[in-house]
């Protein structure tokens, strides 16, 4: 198991390095290939009003005349160890992880990202918990009560779940539950967990359910199919023959074996979740990373866009690392091969 963990860790680090190179390439190298001059790029940092001399000076200070590899080294060093920016008007410290400064506000990118994180994490983790628990339990019950009314109803709902876009279910739920019935707060409501946990959960309820609904449907169907298969396996019969209670037979033997494909899917979905979170945050106007990314793109705020892209990529890599380790823990045959 230990060697497996180390192997996967090294893989994840390599992945992160590649991602940082690609991101750097897209935002710094490709524009230069495409004909953008170092001065044009530097001018974005100092504003259009600056004289050509200043721009030239800044371009030099920012190292846009250096070979690409040196530029990447500086960029990577900034993230790992922090950086110093010298705009001529004095040296500015940008502590690690340094993603540079926003063009618009002039603020460092990282603290802004940090600020937005709790919203996105709350949304993502809450929804993930909800959809996994909800989807898997519905799937298990459907499989055990195959062909009953419950089974048909939940599978019908699940079909709707996978095919309806978040915009639609999100808007619908807002219209019905907040504006219509007034049960839940309107969009844009956010309370920090540390301030008031109950309010935090209450505000997030609708976004959670909307986001979870999209995913839960797939999990319910996958779990149902998996359970129908595993409950017919010989080892489930063996478990019954031992005199195990039906609940233990279902959970410890049937579900345990059906969990592997669910976990695989979870690894993929947890990465995609960022995308789902962007849509959900937009629909409910929550001040999370998704909204941040959209604003950054709209404003062409290069450092901010880069920061959020890199962060999202790290998130995907770390999520898939965690899922891989879970996977090895669940299925002993994985870590042995």
């Amino acid at each position: 198991m230990l060697t497996y963990i180390i192997r996967r860790l090294i893989g994840a680090i390599a992945m992160l390095i590649v991602i940082s190179m690609v991101t750097f390439g897209i935002f710094f190298v490709v524009p230069q290939w495409a004909g953008s001059s170092p001065e044009a790029m530097a001018s974005r940092y100092v504003g259009r009003a600056a004289t050509p001399e200043t721009v030239h000076l800044v371009a030099q200070k920012l190292g846009f005349y250096d070979p690409v590899i040196v530029q990447y080294g500086r960029f990577a060093k900034g993230i790992v160890a922090g950086a110093e920016y010298d705009y001529g008007a004095g040296v500015e410290q940008c502590p690690a992880p340094c993603f540079g400064y926003s063009f618009i506000s002039g603020q460092p990118v990282w603290p802004d990202l940090l600020d937005r994180m709790p919203v996105t994490f709350s949304l993502a983790i809450g929804a993930a918990l909800l959809w996994v628990l909800g989807g898997v339990s519905v799937g298990v019950i459907s499989a055990l009560r195959r062909g009953t009314f419950f089974d048909r109803l939940s599978m019908g709902t699940a079909l709707a779940g996978v095919s309806l876009p978040i915009f639609f279910t999100g808007m619908l739920s807002l219209v019905v539950f907040s504006y219509g019935l007034g049960w839940t707060p309107p969009g844009g409501s956010w309370t920090d967990f540390t301030e008031n946990p109950a309010q935090w959960a209450f505000n997030l309820l609708l976004p959670w359910i909307t986001l979870a609904f999209l995913f839960a449907a797939t999990y319910a169907r996958l779990t149902r199919a998996g359970m129908l298969e595993t409950m017919g396996e010989d080892y489930v019969r063996t478990a019954r023959a031992k005199g195990l209670s039906e609940r233990d037979v279902v959970v410890k033997h049937g579900l345990r074996a059906a969990l592997t494909p669910i976990l695989t899917l979870f690894g993929i979905d947890f990465g995609l979740l960022i995308g789902g979170a962007v849509l959900t945050e937009t629909t409910y106007t929550l001040p999370g990373l998704g909204q941040f990314a959209i604003l950054a793109i709209r404003n062409q705020d290069l450092p901010q866009v880069m920061g959020v892209v890199l962060f999202a990529a790290c998130f995907v890599v770390v999520a898939s690392l965690i899922v891989d380790l879970l996977y090895a823990w669940v299925d002993p045959r994985v870590r042995l091969s």
Partner: peptide
């Protein structure tokens, strides 16, 4: 069949 009759996990 002892292979399929024992839980692989």
């Amino acid at each position: 069949d002892p292979l399929s009759s024992m839980h692989p996990y």
